[in-house]
């Protein structure tokens, strides 16, 4: 679960250090409320929501301070990557750039569905939005990424 929380935080904050801080904060808060665990429907959904809220809070504060973060992804976490050869670095960067530019809800929906394999219901629960909103966001995000990558690749082919 810790890894999923981290990936969601990283998606939103684009900074490995801050993402770890958020996960630590949420896990410790979770531990301090362990008497209540039995009453919760899903521990994972609770934590994902807590991570989401904490990240959005941080992003708001960042904007207030108007300090531009360097946006450095945690490069170390990609070191031992078995899929390295499957996808060219420029393509990878292209998709990531496209994802970074998506509206927040689309980013989160894509992250929870495509990366973590959550059901529509789970995503709606975590993000506190309706099923229809989940699907609309996913539709827009999937097609934005498709458009961005097919356009780039056809322009590469024309260059050659």
């Amino acid at each position: 679960m810790k890894d999923k929380l981290y990936r969601l935080a990283l998606r939103l904050l684009l900074n490995g250090h801050d993402a770890e801080d958020v996960v630590q904060e949420v896990m410790i808060r979770l531990w301090s409320r362990r008497e209540e665990w039995g009453q919760w429907q899903s521990l994972e959904a609770y934590c994902m929501t807590a991570v989401k809220n904490s990240c959005l809070d941080r992003l708001r504060k960042r904007q207030l301070r108007s300090v531009g973060e360097d946006g450095a992804w945690d490069v170390n976490s990609h070191d031992k990557d078995p899929h390295e050869k499957m996808i060219a670095k420029e393509t990878y960067m292209q998709i990531r750039k496209c994802m970074d530019e998506l509206p927040q809800h689309q980013q989160m929906v894509i992250q929870l569905r495509e990366v973590e394999g959550f059901s529509y219901n789970e995503i709606a629960e975590v993000l506190g939005i309706s099923l229809d909103q989940v699907k609309v966001n996913l539709f827009r995000a999937r097609n934005a990424i498709k458009k961005s990558i097919t356009q780039t690749e056809s322009s590469w082919k024309e260059d050659r």
Binding site: D3, G16, I87, Y92, E114
Partner: peptide, 16 residues
């Protein structure tokens, strides 16, 4: 294929 491998790769991202 690139899109699907992108997601698969993202799934391997782990905290320190």
């Amino acid at each position: 294929r690139d899109i699907f491998s992108f997601y698969e790769r993202e799934r391997g991202v782990k905290p320190g």
